[in-house]
Amino acid sequence: MLVIEHLHKSFSTAQGPLPVLQGVDLHLAQGSSLALMGESGSGKSTLLHLVAGLDRADSGRILIDGQPLDGRSEAALARWRREGIGLVFQQYNLISSLDVAANLAFQARLAARCEQHWLDYLTTRLGLASLLQRYPEQLSGGQQQRVAIGRALAARPPLVLADEPTGSLDEASSDEVLTLMLQLVGEAGSSLLMVTHSPRQAARLEQRCVLHAGRIQREAL
């Protein structure tokens, strides 16, 4: 459902253009999962931002179900972010003024796809039923990340983008949260593109690739 072809992206600096992505090719089938690895500064987060429509590539193509993402208006890209993807960040990015229940439903309400039975199921599976009236600052890191995962999946998006989703957690919490995320992504019927620095975490996804010097260097299926 996601095809990236010959993608290039650079950023302006005082010393001139800084190339970050230099011809990235990547394929992700519907319902499958892929771990994107690479050293710091290799362009992993930049690639996620381009797929999310948060930035635009210099050249190359991003295709979603065969339709190009590049060239879409800002309004169309905003609609893609509301309806087409779920985002999970390392730092959670929950809305501090909303309680857990409202944070969980936030993305689904924006997408006009808030199914209460699915939301209730996510709440139970993520162990959040007793925390619905709490606010983010009253939660542990692991609990906040569970809320973030539930929010990302509440609208059953075709694609979930996760940027180091367990990077702020200890190893035990990281394993538990990733297990839940992988199970629920599968149940939602979503595809998953996950950035991680951990080979151990990456090994749990169906595909793995390494981004080095702006290019995909190798891929293990």
Score class of each variant (00 low, 15 high):
R79I: 13
L211K: 00
T13Q: 02
G141M: 11
G142P: 00
L69Q: 09
D120T: 15
K44P: 11
R109M: 00
S191I: 08
S59W: 03
L36C: 13
S59F: 07
Q22S: 07
V210Q: 12
G41S: 03
C114N: 06
Y135K: 02
M194P: 02
A57V: 05
Q91G: 06
A112S: 14
T196G: 09
I64N: 07
R82I: 03
V185R: 04
W118E: 00
L50V: 06
E74I: 03
A172H: 15
F89L: 04
T46I: 02
S59T: 01
D99I: 08
G23A: 10
A52P: 03
G23P: 06
G86S: 10
D55K: 12
V3Q: 11
I85M: 11
E164G: 05
A155S: 02
G43H: 06
P68T: 00
L182F: 11
L87G: 07
S130N: 00
E115C: 12
G141N: 12
S168R: 09
Q183C: 14
L193R: 14
L126K: 12
G189L: 09
G66M: 11
I85V: 15
S198K: 07
Q183A: 15
G127F: 01
G60Y: 02
S198I: 04
S168L: 05
A29M: 11
S59N: 05
L126I: 08
A35G: 00
T179D: 15
V3W: 09
G41Q: 03
A105I: 00
R113N: 02
T196I: 04
L50C: 02
L205Q: 01
G86K: 13
Q133N: 11
L122F: 05
M181N: 04
W118H: 01
R81A: 07
I216N: 14
G189E: 06
H212L: 06
L63M: 03
L63Q: 07
E74P: 03
F89I: 08
K9P: 06
D120M: 12
P17G: 04
E219I: 10
S198W: 01
S96A: 15
A57F: 08
E39C: 05
L54V: 10
G41N: 06
S97Q: 08
S12E: 03
S190W: 06
D99E: 08
A155F: 04
L47T: 14
L153F: 11
T13V: 03
P158I: 10
L47K: 15
S59L: 00
Q201A: 15
L132I: 10
H212E: 02
